[in-house]
Design a protein around this nucleic acid. Structure first.
Length: 110
DNA sequence: TGCGTGACCACGG
DNA sequence: CCCGTGGCCACGC
């Protein structure tokens, strides 16, 4: 993994998220070795919204809540995208979050 | 230059 | 995953 800007790194990991799976800001931050900077990951993802190459909708907080849905074109767009991938959502909360959770630390086996 | 804010998280109670 | 507090990094004013 190239060590460019933190943003580019976050974007790169986000692109690797498989379809139908989700991950958390903290997981990405942890994978990048800056676990305590999870907030910056969220900030980076916000900047990645205009970039359609990056599935920002597959990134939620650590409990599976769509905290960033308000940042999309419409508050329901994020949920709709996830549901299209087979992910169930109830009240902005991902159901079976543990089953669809994708941990870059394990999956990418650093 | 300094301070407030934020798609967060870990910890103690 | 309750609740309050501290810490982290980047950005805008």
């Amino acid at each position: 993994m190239n060590e460019e800007n933190f943003f580019q790194n976050v974007h790169d990991v986000a692109k690797l998220i498989p379809k139908g799976r989700v991950t958390s800001y903290g997981a990405i931050a942890n994978y990048l070795g800056v676990k305590r900077s999870a907030r910056v990951v969220g900030w980076a993802m916000k900047s990645s919204i205009p970039v359609h190459d990056i599935p920002a909708h597959r990134v939620v907080n650590r409990v599976g809540v769509l905290t960033g849905k308000n940042n999309f074109a419409t508050p329901t767009h994020m949920q709709e995208l996830l549901e299209q991938e087979g992910i169930k959502i109830k009240n902005d909360q991902i159901l079976d979050f543990e089953k669809v959770f994708w941990d870059p630390m394990k999956e990418l086996a650093l």
